[in-house]
């Protein structure tokens, strides 16, 4: 049982690791992070802040792109090219397949982020900056965000076409970063029905802004331990729910 999940996970990782697009995205993430040096030439005063701001923004942007791209692409290809038949015709349950896929995608994101984060820290050090544990905390939060994105893309891939999964996942990612606007909506919305609906959506849709602590971290005001803990708890619970839903849907899926 366990080796099947492990096998699927490792094979998923290997697929990314041998995919040119994946390398290209990691490469561009690194390139843009390094080009923050150029931007820092344009500023006066605290060049290190600009360097960190731009570098973290580049890593955030490209890692999110990798997550959406990889998440949608890997599952879609497996179904579209019918390699999934070779797996599910063996004693492997649908649950194991989904779980293995998620672990493989998680490993992919971990490695991609580790590479970019490592280069970022070296780059900061080369420019005379010290190691900032708060930035390491940001990378942890970013990883949680990426895992949620990957789980979302897995959910959509389990029942819809890749182009739709891509659009849905990307939309949820963008929406997830402005969910806090609900705090304003709830003041304005008077009708109880609309209020309830907004409230339902607020708690149902992924709320990703809490993982985006890069601004606070660079300004030297990292979030407190309690909010970090709540964020981690949120990520784990949300991913668990997504995986269960994906498995429920994927169990009913037919491969004709």
């Amino acid at each position: 049982m366990r080796t099947a999940v492990k096998g699927i996970a490792l094979n998923t990782f290997r697929e990314s690791a041998r995919n040119k697009v994946f390398y290209l995205l990691v490469f561009f993430g690194v390139l843009f992070a390094l080009s923050s040096k150029l931007v820092s030439f344009l500023t006066l005063g605290d060049a290190m802040k600009v360097l960190k701001d731009t570098g973290l923004a580049a890593i955030h942007f490209f890692s999110a792109l990798i997550a959406v791209f990889t998440g949608v692409n890997l599952v879609y290809k497996e179904i579209e090219k019918k390699t999934v038949l070779n797996i599910l015709s063996k004693p492997v349950s649908r649950d194991q397949f989904i779980f293995g896929k998620f672990l493989g995608l998680a490993l992919t994101m971990l490695v991609a982020l580790a590479v970019m984060a490592g280069i970022f820290f070296v780059f900061v050090a080369l420019n005379g900056g010290g190691f900032d544990p708060a930035i390491a905390l940001y990378f942890l939060m970013l990883l949680l965000e990426l895992l949620i994105i990957v789980a979302i893309s897995l959910l959509f891939s389990s029942f819809t076409t890749p182009i739709l999964s891509f659009i849905f996942t990307l939309s949820l990612y963008l929406i997830g970063h402005v969910m806090w606007t609900y705090n304003e909506f709830k003041v304005v919305l008077k009708a109880p029905l609309w209020r309830g609906f907004a409230r339902f959506l607020y708690y149902l849709l992924p709320n990703l802004a809490k993982f985006n602590i890069k601004n606070e971290v660079v300004l030297g005001t990292p979030p407190g331990a309690w909010t970090v803990l709540l964020s981690i708890l949120y990520a784990l619970a949300y991913i668990l729910a997504l995986l269960c839903l994906t498995i429920l849907i994927f169990r009913r899926r037919e491969f004709s």
């Binding site: 619970a237 668990l240 839903l245």
Partner: peptide, 22 residues
């Protein structure tokens, strides 16, 4: 599975709720 999915969503909502309070 459905119960776990629901529990996960509720837990996430709870965490969100606490987070918003802070």
């Amino acid at each position: 599975l459905a119960v776990v999915a629901l529990a996960g969503l509720l837990l996430a909502a709870g965490a969100q709720n606490r987070y918003d309070a802070v």
